[in-house]
Each structure stands twice: as structure tokens, then as C-alpha cells.
Design a protein around this nucleic acid. Structure first.
Lengths: 331, 331
DNA sequence: TTGTAAGCGTTATCAA
DNA sequence: TTGATAACGCTTACAA
């Protein structure tokens, strides 16, 4: 069954509270007793019972990451994966554990329940997993929470962190210009997601107005070939793709239509994983640092939990451009 | 602060224990009082405090998945990612939460600590995160634990689940034979990992002895070109690769040496992610179902926690072959 | 079918 | 610097 704080106390000849104080450093204890207590704890290999502790303090020292399970494929692979390592690591360093919770309201234990039941001290949650009920619950209890991704306007009022998608687009455009491409076209899935609309914004800011062409893949998957054929005639000499799979499809079609990458057409994609490096030719990318994103989200959340002041209500992680063959016009 | 079980009891006019019994269904309560209690719980939007509950019962209703953080890249991307969704889902369905824990002993809260501190009821853990201390601790406390992957002999004595790597190799060989390839060569990283040695075993079982060639990439990354050149002369007309990245390197080199895939050389790789589908040509794969693996591991663990009998001390998830262009010799 | 009361291991308050 | 003691919210014998 393991020892309790009382066992330690008895063996040393002090009261349980003194042992507790040594464990938590919550009062000054004479070096002597402190030493003795530590020795006995070591000797008996004592570990405090986290359940009792949580119960007594009202704190779990656990944070939850809500995952968008409906979105398992797209979200999981490119975004979640690397973030979760970072979040776990950062949480550990602050002495917190990480709980994974399902964002799907209809299945099992919901995020709301974690809050109601006080199973965690704070929440990291993608904006699209936030719902009205949860929002009110969090606000009513002043419950620490940070959004993993910039919310649409209507969900403002929570702190958030995100990749600099807007800046990333600009970076892609500037890079292509520098390499001698004049007519970059932006391919996004659609503007419904915040990250795609931010990317469209960044693109619009850095490409002259009369040259701007934004293709919504959601509407053009079926007639991609025809769409590209038309564009390639005179409106496009480079593609900026919002994800790897898109880049694969577009690149394949460009080549099939008889154009060469990078000599005639340049290509840049968002995301360095999973395909970019292995395409033919290897793709230049706007790398999004989801690891830093996770770190930043976790730091802020834990600051909130510990009532530290937070400088800003959002954090933006810069992107970085990795140049590969797909934009080497010369050579 | 929220309501407690006493508030409910008082309002209904019963004792706290009666409320508890209704919540847990742990005794027969008259339909009438039961109804009243439920109504009041609903009305006050009461949720039991999980900390108090855990403390009282000694159970957390939480399981931990230990992740191999040192191995972040390789392990994370191909294996962990999809398993974690499955594990979370299956845990939810049984009313358990999922905690992510770091396998690195030197960082933060270790798996052992979770056990010592009773923060979870059971552990899912990759064999290489198991260490002597943890092993003894688990055994001494009869602590529920399941290995995510077949252990080396020395770590036997725990239940485990794994992909059928051995069968997967056989499947690859049979498929290649059926498609008219006669001399498949197996490429693995090395035999230090259980999955690679199992794959070597399956290969050895299904290829005639005098034709067997197993290349350890660990020793041949630098002279891959020369190695392949020699093999391609007369010892090899197909490659079975133990992972996608390997398949990429090998495929590229085969083509560079002037051989055509699949007309002259067939290719099969383990793992359907992340590259197989997007290679040129798209690769036939031995698909490993890490989703099922996660489900199976979780089911077994929860059975152990709930002291249900477990049929077997291990579970093996079959692989399946997905045929793509890389093995279509004809056509 | 229900109530009473003890107990889970720790922290926190108040006194000394 | 330390010790008693109550309190945290729930479950669970044991009694009725």
C-alpha cells in the first residue's frame, strides 16, 4: 500500500504537518528536522499520494489538450503531432501532466466535463472545438484556457497562439520574387478556415493587385487540370500551396502538362511535413514551427494557472523559409 | 465553487450516501427517490468532484501512455500518432482519460512517478521505455501495464500487443512472387529492434535459402549506390523496405542506376504513411494498422484494471497489403 | 431501501 | 519552528 505522510512523521518523531511543510517548502523548518525527514522519506522511498494532494489543494497539476478527433486525418498529421510533444515537454518542466481529451461533444468525456469535474487545471483547445456551453463555463469559472490557433472574431475574448500564416504567405511571395518568378498563384483549400484566410491576406498584401490569383481547391479538385492549363498560359509562373498534399497534386499536374519545375514554374508549399522533402523536385517550404507553438501555448496556460501576469493576449510564431530545388530557377 | 453531494442530499431530503448510490448505481434505490435525486442534480447542474472521488476510491479512471520522446522523430511520426487517437477513443468509451507521459527518465515526471503517486490506474508503454526500476515497481504492486510492441526476451512477463511484422514480411514476399518477381531483397535498418528482426524472420521463412539477401541500412547508407549496383546485376529484382524513408532512398537510387520500377524492379514498403502513396511510382505497402493496435492495447489494459480475465498474454494485429503501381510488372 | 459515521492522505488554520 | 485539528467531497461498511 505504500507509506503515508503519517508513517514518515511517526518514524522521525514529528507531526505530519511538519513533513508536509518540508515536502512543499511552505514554511521554514530547521535544517536538522528537515534533514531527518528527507532521510526517512528517501529510506522508505516515500512518494506523496497525488490524489490526496489534489483533493486537499483543489489543484490537479494536470492540463488537458483537446484534440479534434473528427478531424483526425488532416489535423492529426500535420499539426497536432509535433505540438503534442512540445506541450508534454513544457508541461513536464513546470511539473504538470498532460491529459488528452476528445473534442467531440458526443463521445465519452467531453472537455466540459473535465472542467466540471475539476479533473484538470487548464485547457489547451483548438478554436473549432470551442462551443457555446464550454465558453460560458470557462468564463463563469475564470478557468484557465488558451486557444491553439487564432479564433474567428466571434470567439475572441480568449487568449490564443498561432503560426504567423499571414507573414508566411508574404515570405513565400518575397522568396519567389527574389528567385525571378513574377506571377505566383495562391492555392488554398477555401477561406473558411482562419489559417487559409490569413494566408490569403498575406498574399494579397505582397502581390500587386492586378496579378493576384487565388484558387480554392475545394472548388477545383475535379477540374484541376483545366484550371491549371488556363493559368499556365500567361497568368502563373509559380504556385504557393497551402499544404503538402495539394502541392503534390498540383506539381504532378504541372509536370503532366509539360511544364518544368523549377525552370518554368516555381513551387512553394506550407508545411515541411510529411512530403515536401521527398517530392520531385524537393519542395521549398514555408515551415511552420508547431513545436514552438506548443511550447508557447503551454507556457501561457501555466502562467494563467499560476496567476502570473501575461504580457499579451496572443502569441504569434514566425514561419521560416526552407529553400529547396523547386524554386531554383537557375541551375 | 459548485455544489457538493451534500447540497443535493439536503435539497432532496436524503443522506449523502443515497445520492452517492444513485450516482454510482451501487445499490438498489427506490425509483421515487432516485428520480428526485436525478432531478435535483440536473437542476443544479451538479457534477461530482473527480478529485474527491479518486481520493475516496483509490482509482483515478485515467491511464497513461508513455511516449518515447528521445525517439520523437521516427517513432512519433509513423507509429505513435495514429495509435494515440485510438487509445484516447477506446479509453473514453470505457470512461477513462488518457494521460501522456514522457519516457525519458531524466526529464520531469517519469512513468515511475505516475505509479508511485497513484496518478493513473494503468500504463501503456513501449518496451524500450521500460527499465529495471519501473519493471520491479510494476511487478511489486501488481500494477496494470501493457507493452505497446513485442518485447525482447529479457522483458517478457508483461502482456503486450504488436503488429504482425513477421506475417507482414511473408505477405510482401508472397505478393511479389505472385506478381512475377523472383528475387526479393529485404532492407531493414538493423536487427537490433524487435520489429526489424521479426521482419527478417518472416522473410527468411518465405524466401528460399540460397536466394535470401538482407541488407542492413545502418551499415550501407553511405555505400548504398554501390551496394544496389552489385545486387541489381543478378541478385535482386525486388525490394522490401522496412520504412518509407528507406524506400524513398532505395527507389531513387534504383531509378538513377537506370532500372525501371515496376517493370524491372518491384518495390514494397512497410507502412502506408507518410510517403508511400505519393512516391513515383506510388508504392505497394504492407500496411500496419496502428489504430487497431492502440484499440487492442487499451482494451486489454482496461480489462486488467477491472480485473477481467484476459484470454491471452499477447495480441497480434495482422497486416494488410495495399497494391499500387510499384509491383505492377505488367501494364 | 436508507442513514450514520468512519475514513481516504494531504494541506491549511490556528495556537503555541 | 512546530503541533493539533479541521477540512477537502466522496465512498463504504455497518446498522437500522
Amino acid at each position: 500500500m505504500g507509506y503515508t505522510i503519517k508513517d514518515i512523521a511517526k518514524k522521525v518523531g514529528v507531526s505530519p504537518s511538519t513533513v508536509s511543510r518540508v515536502i512543499n517548502g511552505t514554511a521554514t523548518i530547521s535544517e536538522e528536522t528537515s534533514q531527518k525527514i528527507r532521510a526517512v522519506m528517501e529510506e522508505l522511498n516515500y512518494h506523496p499520494n497525488s490524489m490526496a494532494r489534489s483533493f486537499a489543494t483543489g489543484l490537479t497539476r494536470t492540463i488537458a489538450l483537446v484534440i479534434d478527433a473528427d478531424n483526425e486525418k488532416s489535423f492529426a498529421n500535420s499539426f497536432f503531432n509535433r505540438s503534442v510533444f512540445a506541450i508534454e515537454k513544457q508541461a513536464q518542466e513546470a511539473g504538470f501532466n498532460l491529459l488528452i481529451a476528445n473534442g467531440n461533444k458526443n463521445v465519452g468525456i467531453s472537455a466540459s466535463q473535465l472542467v466540471y469535474e475539476k479533473k484538470v487545471d487548464g485547457l489547451i483547445i483548438p478554436p473549432n472545438c470551442m462551443n457555446r456551453e464550454l465558453e460560458q463555463l470557462l468564463k463563469a469559472n475564470d478557468f484557465p484556457c488558451i486557444l491553439l490557433g487564432k479564433p474567428k472574431k466571434k470567439k475572441a475574448s480568449f487568449f490564443w497562439v498561432d503560426i504567423d500564416n499571414r507573414g508566411g504567405s508574404r515570405q513565400a511571395v518575397e522568396h519567389l520574387k527574389k528567385r525571378g518568378y513574377k506571377k505566383p498563384v495562391l492555392f488554398i483549400e477555401n477561406e473558411a478556415t482562419v489559417f487559409d484566410s490569413e494566408r490569403a491576406l498575406g498574399y494579397a498584401e505582397s502581390v500587386e493587385e492586378e496579378q493576384q490569383v487565388v484558387i480554392h481547391m475545394a472548388e477545383h479538385r475535379d477540374d484541376l487540370s483545366a484550371t491549371l492549363k488556363k493559368l499556365l498560359k500567361n497568368k502563373m509562373d509559380a504556385a504557393i500551396c497551402s499544404n503538402n498534399e495539394m502541392a503534390y497534386l498540383i506539381g504532378k499536374e504541372i509536370k503532366r502538362l509539360g511544364y518544368s519545375v523549377p525552370q518554368e514554374i516555381g513551387m512553394v508549399t506550407f508545411d515541411n511535413y510529411p512530403l515536401a522533402e521527398y517530392m520531385e523536385p524537393p519542395l521549398s517550404v514555408v515551415d511552420v514551427d508547431t513545436y514552438s507553438l506548443g511550447i508557447e501555448a503551454t507556457k501561457r496556460l501555466i502562467d494563467m494557472i499560476q496567476k502570473k501576469e501575461i504580457k499579451e493576449d496572443y502569441g504569434i510564431i514566425p514561419t521560416s523559409l526552407i529553400e529547396r530545388t523547386s524554386t531554383r530557377k537557375e541551375g
